[in-house]
Simulated scan of single mutants.
Amino acid sequence: MASRERGSSVSPISWAAALLLAVGMERALALPEICTQCPGGVQNTSRVAAYCEETSELMQARCCLNQKGTILGLDLQNCSLKDPGTNFFQASTAVIIDLQANPLKDGLTNAFRGFTQLQTLILPQDVTCPGGISAWESSTSFIDKQICQGQKDLCNSTGSPEMCPENGSCAPEGPGLLQCVCADGFHGYKCMRQGSFPLLMFFGILGSTTLAISILLWGTQRRKAKAS
């Protein structure tokens, strides 16, 4: 009986399975840290998961991601968080965020700096909406949570708390936050200085000052060494 010849060929199905596994591992490795900083999955009643399903996006760990890996939703409810954490800015592209059932401290405005796309924010019942009620279309309190809905663009609001100078334009920077961006050709305080920022002069002065201080310190230490 002839022996079966050993070959090195691999079936197309095996190659396809290996490719899918490699893609899946690469996607898992690329998952932002904020998505995995809280153990466990989302609850069945998660509004973030519901949003992800409605928009046909992908739910991974605690994040709702689009095909490019951009975070559209973040569910960190019941994660024992006293503050959003250093990785929280990774979710600045999110449209919906759930932070309920956490011992969060009040006054979260700066934590949401740059979250210009955020439209739904779910917080513990005793935590106020970042930026105050004037930064949102509505703020609804429940027994166990508070929902901030519809972030307002303060640049388009009448009676804005900050007016930009003539050579600058207003840009939203998150709930209750805005910034003034200087027009092309202007810089400095209130965008009053015209022309490009003198980088060469700035770094030249900075370098000269640093060098002078270094020489002075070196000389002082040398005199002390001789005296001793």
Rank of each mutant, 00 (worst) to 15 (best):
G41I: 04
R62E: 02
Y51M: 08
L29I: 12
A22D: 09
A28Q: 11
C129P: 01
G107E: 01
L65M: 09
Q37D: 00
S92R: 12
F115Y: 10
S14Y: 09
T93N: 13
R47W: 05
I71H: 03
Q100P: 00
V23P: 08
Q43A: 12
T45W: 04
L104A: 00
L31T: 14
S138K: 08
C38I: 02
S141P: 08
S46E: 02
T140H: 07
P103G: 08
G132V: 01
Q90C: 07
G85S: 11
S134D: 03
A17Q: 14
A61E: 08
M59C: 03
L76H: 04
G73E: 07
G41K: 04
T93L: 08
L118F: 11
N102Q: 04
Q60F: 07
S80I: 07
S56Q: 13
D144F: 14
M25I: 15
L74K: 10
L31I: 10
T93E: 10
A30T: 08
T120Q: 09
L20A: 15
R62W: 02
A17D: 12
Q77S: 15
T116A: 11
S56P: 00
A16C: 15
L81T: 07
T116W: 05
T93S: 14
Q77Y: 03
V48F: 03
L104R: 02
S92H: 12
L99C: 00
F142N: 12
Q117P: 05
D106V: 02
R47L: 06
C64M: 07
P84H: 08
A61P: 04
F115M: 04
